[in-house]
């Protein structure tokens, strides 16, 4: 029996995920990773490079089905909107057609989501004429356009210069306020984690597990420099424990 609100919760359980090395040796990557995400919540998974963050996202997105566990997306929204580390736009389609490809052909919805990411003037532009920052925004728009049950983002702001990254983080904060998507965001940048998260999960060890959890009460849009510094300090203390 589902209680009220149960269908509004995303439950991800990875009991065991292993990789087989070329030599035939089996290496465990993730073990007993459990994530419960509430509707509209922004959960950041923090971990160092190569700790299994992208693997986790690929399991959730259904790109890799070779694991023990379960993924329940609930009944809200349309599947997974994946924002990859690289934009992965189809270069032979215009920005607008890239959005159209993954979703319905609702012109208004496409226009409004492109407007939201600041690409209102780039409907007919081909992706390789966009800067990396713009292409990343287009990829975000594509994921938002399908109205996903869960928006997953794999370090979408790496290898941008700091100014662009800050601007995109602010843009994302605005979009999170406006659309209230349910988000799983993966990063190895602590500043980014405390800026965006409602809750941070720290992935550690080999095989990786959720080692610590930190919940933030101040809403994202009113977090000033002192609050962020305090959050970052708390996160660091947890990490060094």
């Amino acid at each position: 029996m589902l209680t009220a609100g149960e269908d509004r919760k995303i439950i991800i359980r990875i009991e065991n995920k292993t990789f087989t090395q070329p030599g035939g040796k089996t290496v465990p990557v993730l073990q007993n990773v459990e994530l419960n995400i509430l509707e509209g919540e922004v959960v950041v998974v923090f971990g160092s490079s190569g700790c299994g963050k992208t693997t986790l996202l690929n399991l959730i997105a259904g790109l890799d089905v070779d694991f023990q566990g379960s993924i329940e997306l609930g009944t809200q929204g349309n599947g997974i909107g994946y924002v990859f580390q690289e934009p992965r736009l189809l270069p032979w389609l215009t920005v607008e057609d890239n959005l159209r490809l993954v979703g319905e052909n609702n012109e208004e919805a496409i226009s409004s989501v492109l407007e939201a990411v600041g690409l209102a003037d780039s409907h007919q532009t081909y992706p390789n004429r966009l800067s990396l920052g713009m292409a990343r925004r287009a990829a975000l728009a594509r994921a938002l356009a399908i109205n996903p049950a869960l928006l997953i983002m794999d370090e979408p702001f790496v290898s941008l210069d700091e100014n662009t990254a800050v601007r995109l983080r602010n843009l994302l904060t605005e979009i999170l306020e406006l659309h209230k998507p349910t988000v799983l965001f993966v990063t190895h940048d602590l500043k980014e984690a405390v800026t965006l998260a409602d809750r941070v999960l720290f992935l550690k060890g080999s095989p990786a597990q959720v080692a610590e959890e930190l919940k933030f009460d101040t809403p994202r849009i009113v977090r000033g420099p002192e609050v962020l510094a305090d959050y970052e300090e708390r996160a660091r203390t947890l990490l060094n424990r």
């Binding site: 690929n58 997105a61 259904g62 790109l63 599947g79 997974i80 909107g81 994946y82 990859f84 992965r88 490809l101 993954v102 594509r142 399908i146």
Partner: peptide, 8 residues
């Protein structure tokens, strides 16, 4: 992978 994740 992109095509698969968006269930094309």
């Amino acid at each position: 992978e992109m095509a698969a994740s968006f269930r094309l």
